[in-house]
Write a protein that binds this DNA or RNA. Structure first.
Lengths: 242, 242
DNA sequence: TCAAAAGTGTTACTGATACACCCATGT
DNA sequence: ACATGGGTGTATCAGTAACACTTTTGA
């Protein structure tokens, strides 16, 4: 016969070692200007304050609450750990290798874009730092590999979709936008051809304002809000590649 | 202060109503010849034998075991419920809406391709049926929407990747392959242009054998195994769009 | 007036498509 | 012989890339 104490320890075991828990993490990308003057992809990480990997940097995230959807959990944990509210959020992949954590954790990972003018929020926070994507330190868990995959997705999606505006403020020049693409793709783009491509895509609205200060003034553009930015997931009607 | 009894009831609640469980399901595609003679995308579903949705058809799947990876769980549950071992398997999406099941379930959904010559296995099984993808009945949970998304992904991926061979036997004619593409994409393809495209893709190896029986014999091809078929997931090195 | 970025025009190339045409076999 | 699908050749078109060129400003 099973005693009360045994029941308790069984339940406890199930909660810790034996049960699978669901976590949600997010890879947040932004493009910032480095000391050397050129634009680079950067992302925030948070310092872990408990084992495993105590002291290491990790992707922002947290446990999935029973009363919230995966998307909501991504937004919430992001706000709680970094204070950030990204302009674009899309599910990346579910990671579930048995040994990726000492206890069994399945992580639903999202990736997000942050507008350049929204970055400041997280700068105030203790335990949050930004690294250039090509100079990341060792991260906790399998987070380095996850970031690599998210980068691959970002580069890939930027090729056929027009989401790079999720990284810029309301108004921007074509040079600003081209700089973002160049930072993501890691190569120079022809200004003339780039202009025609984005103009023909229909996602840009020209304004009557210009940015002055250096050489010939450049026209400012804003995004055509008709083209959907946030990814509503597969359950929403949607015919854009993902 | 918290008493012992309260601790126990908290743990128990967490195990039943309060806990989130992780399930793994798979959308399995094959192409079969319908009564009318043309090829069509079809998929197997299994009859539910308990609530919720008792008696309805549902995607094959099961609970994630604590000791297996997500990929392994997809393969295992597939074999257990349908006896099938697909030639291609890739993670589709993690579904986690709060109300998609009476209890909280996060489903990691995979999609798979099955070679035409491997279909028979599941035909023997009770509780497994095949439906044409465009004539599905109402399925349990949100499975109809999941199938729609998987179909979208299949059509999409078939456009830029050469995975349709995952639906054919070892040797096949170009007409066989074209028929598969036509069934997936829902439109006719020019035989001449189709031939050149797949020949230039480098994924096909011509054999010296021909299929005879009707008109001019057609050369049989097999797949170039150098091009990877199974999706090893983002943690493997990989530069093919997904 | 000159350097440099903004912006326009032109050409070459590539891959997709449409379709005319020849080839080889079963009936 | 002829109908039919297998297989080849070729013209057209659209999108991309390369790059010469003009425009407009700050210094």
């Amino acid at each position: 016969m099973v005693t009360r104490t045994e029941l308790v320890s069984r339940d406890t075991a199930r909660d810790s070692a034996d049960a699978t828990r669901v976590a949600v993490s997010t890879v947040i990308f932004t493009v910032r200007r480095t000391a050397s003057g050129r634009a680079a992809v950067a992302l925030p990480v948070v310092r872990r304050t408990r084992d495993p990997y105590d002291g290491l940097w990790a992707l922002p995230g947290g446990w999935l609450d029973v009363t919230e959807s995966l998307d909501a959990a991504a937004s919430r944990t992001l706000a709680e750990t970094t204070g950030l509210a990204p302009s674009y959020l899309e599910q990346l992949y579910a990671f579930g290798a048995v040994d990726r954590s000492p206890t069994r954790v399945v992580s639903i990972v999202y990736w997000a874009l942050l507008r350049a003018d929204e970055v400041e929020a997280a700068d105030a926070l203790e335990n949050v730092t930004w690294f250039d994507a090509d100079a990341l330190p060792r991260l906790a868990f399998d987070h380095n590999e996850i970031v690599e995959y998210a980068l691959w997705r970002l580069r890939n999606k930027v090729g056929y979709s027009r989401i790079a505006h999720g990284l810029l403020a309301d108004e921007f020049t074509l040079a600003d936008l081209r700089e973002v693409y160049e930072a993501i793709l890691g190569r120079r783009l022809d200004p003339a051809n780039f202009r025609r491509q984005v103009e023909n895509s229909g996602t840009l609205l020209p304004t009557e304002r210009f940015r002055t200060g250096s050489h010939r003034p450049a026209r400012l553009y804003r995004y055509n809000q008709d083209v959907e930015l946030a990814d509503r997931g597969p359950l929403a009607s949607d015919d854009e590649p993902r």
